[in-house]
């Protein structure tokens, strides 16, 4: 069986890499074999940060340059990411899951289903409590909406409950989770959702 391919999109600085850093130990604990592809926009910094974190062998983390187009490389032309995922699968046949972190983009970015089986979109409270109400395609179409940095909501004048309610309102039955990578809260819920929807290992 091939590994599930899961996209992680969202605006610059929302905490996509931080989320991966929190997910990796949880996934490892459950015996889910994982690899990561990052689409850093201007450096290999995210890939390097994950390698230094040491939660995965360095060669299970690939960086794919996005040619200044973070949305192109995950939507209009995902072939480079598909090729990277194929390389990982060929090299590590035991993989259950490949996480693909998009470069920081805007609320209109979405993942091509040619590339991923399932994707989450991460926003954070510091981006503003009104983000869900803006009806961005990323917020609306993702399989899971993650609202990160719940720990700092009071400091940025955001009513977190209202933000969650607004997100649920625009997304209908599709799931929304508020998490804090800093406080490691509700990360396990994301993994549960992943296991329910995509990883059957």
């Amino acid at each position: 069986m091939t590994a599930a391919r899961v996209g992680i999109g969202g605006p610059v600085g929302c905490g996509k890499t931080a989320l991966i850093e929190q997910l990796l130990p949880e996934l490892a604990r459950l015996g889910i074999e994982t690899a990561v592809i990052t689409n850093d926009l201007v450096t290999d910094e995210d890939a390097e940060r994950l390698r230094k974190g040491g939660q995965l062998p360095a060669n299970r983390i690939l960086a794919v340059q996005a040619g200044a187009c973070p949305h192109t490389v995950i939507r209009e032309d995902p072939t480079l990411n598909m090729a990277a995922a194929d390389r990982l699968e060929a090299e590590f046949p035991e993989l259950d899951l490949i996480l693909i972190e998009s470069g920081g983009d805007n609320l209109a970015s979405t993942f091509s289903l040619d590339l991923v089986d399932w994707w989450m979109f991460v926003i954070d409270v510091a981006g503003g409590g009104d983000i869900p109400r803006k009806n961005g395609p990323g917020v609306l179409q993702c399989d899971l909406l993650v609202i990160n940095k719940s720990d700092i909501a009071p400091h940025v004048d955001v009513d977190l409950d209202q933000m969650i309610a607004d997100a649920k309102q625009v997304r209908g039955p599709k799931p929304v989770l508020a998490v804090s990578c800093r406080e490691r809260s509700r990360i396990a819920d994301i993994v549960s959702q992943l296991r329910r929807d995509v990883i059957f290992a």
Binding site: Q65, A66, G67, C69, V73, E76, D77, P78, T79, L80
Partner: peptide, 8 residues
Amino acid sequence: AFPAGVFA
């Protein structure tokens, strides 16, 4: 827009 990675 032919998807073959050339843009990168």
